[in-house]
Design a protein around this nucleic acid. Structure first.
Lengths: 146, 146
DNA sequence: TGACATTGGTCAGATTCCCTGACTACTTTG
DNA sequence: CAAAGTAGTCAGGGAATCTGACCAATGTCA
C-alpha cells in the first residue's frame, strides 16, 4: 500500500472523477446550492425521473438503508426531495426529486458538459471517443446495475 | 441531480474504480488485513518508499492535516506505519510504511493485476492500451500532483 | 389457506471520519 | 534578528456510516 510510479488503471480513473466532482460542487455552491453535502448528492444523483425506492438508492450508492434514510431525511428538510407512497407496494415509498433538485441538476449538467469539452480539447476528439467507448464497455463487467 | 440514461464520463470512470477498490478490500480482509479502514488505506497508499510528511499526505488525500494525523495515529497503533524524525526539518516527522504495510501491499498489488487482466480480456488489448493512454494524458490536467 | 421467509423501511446507539479554530515549535526570508 | 510561513498537535463538534433489533406488507408453497 505505498505510492508507485505507474498508477494502476483504477487510480487513473479516480483522478479525473474527483477533479470533475470538485468542479461540480464548487459551481453548485457558487450558484447558491450550498445546503447539501457530497454524501447527500451521491444519493440524489441516483433518483430516477419517476422516483426511486430507498432500498434501491442505498444499494446503488453502496450504503445501508439506514444511512440512505438519514440522508434522504436531510434532503427532504432542505426541499430537494419528497417522499410519496409507492402505489405498487404499500410498504414502500418513492423518493422523488423536487423542483429545487431539477434546478441544481441543470447547473451540475452545465459544468459536466464544460469539463468534458475541456477534456476533449486536451485529448483530441478521437481519443475522447475511444475513452468513452472503453469505459462504456467496461461498465458491463463493473456495474452491477448496468 | 437525477440519474440519466447516458452517464457522464466522470461517472463512467467512477464505476470501475469502485469495483476495483471493492475487490482489493475484500481480498485484503480475506488475507487477514481487516484491521484498517478505507480512509486509513487512502492515506497509507500515498506513503512513499522513504516516508512522507503528514502535511503532504493530507494534501494528496484532500483531507486536513488534523484528519491525516488522526488516521496515521490509528495506522501506527495497528502496526502499519511508524513515525521517524525528518532529518532535514526538525519540525517534521516522516510517516514510514512498516513490514505489515508492505505485506498488505503485495496482496493488494496482486488483486489489482488480476482485475486489470480481466479488464484487458474484456476490452481487448488494443482498447485497453487506448484507455490507459487517454487516462494518462488526462492526468496532466486533472491531477495537481502529476 | 396459513405458516414462513423475504422485502421495505424505521428506531436506537455507537463509531468513524472529517472539519474549524487555536496553539506550539521550528524554519525561511528580508 | 524580526516577521512571516510551515509542520504538526490539541480541543471540540458535526456529518456519515455502521450493527442490531424491530415492524409491517408481500411472496411462496405445502
Amino acid at each position: 500500500m505505498v505510492a508507485e510510479s505507474e498508477p494502476n488503471t483504477g487510480v487513473l480513473m479516480f483522478l479525473p472523477y474527483r477533479a470533475l466532482e470538485n468542479r461540480v460542487f464548487a459551481a453548485l455552491a457558487e450558484a447558491g446550492f450550498d445546503d447539501f453535502t457530497p454524501a447527500q448528492a451521491r444519493v440524489m444523483q441516483r433518483i430516477g425521473p419517476d422516483g426511486t425506492r430507498l432500498t434501491e438508492l442505498a444499494e446503488q450508492a453502496q450504503i445501508t438503508k439506514q444511512t440512505a434514510g438519514f440522508l434522504v431525511d436531510q434532503l427532504e428538510k432542505a426541499g430537494y426531495v419528497t417522499r410519496v407512497p409507492d402505489p405498487s407496494d404499500r410498504r414502500a415509498r418513492l423518493v422523488r426529486g423536487a423542483a429545487k433538485a431539477w434546478a441544481a441538476k441543470e447547473v451540475a449538467d452545465a459544468v459536466v458538459a464544460q469539463v468534458e469539452r475541456e477534456w476533449e480539447e486536451h485529448l483530441g476528439r478521437r481519443r475522447m471517443r475511444q475513452l468513452r467507448e472503453a469505459l462504456t464497455l467496461l461498465r458491463e463487467i463493473t456495474d452491477p446495475w448496468a
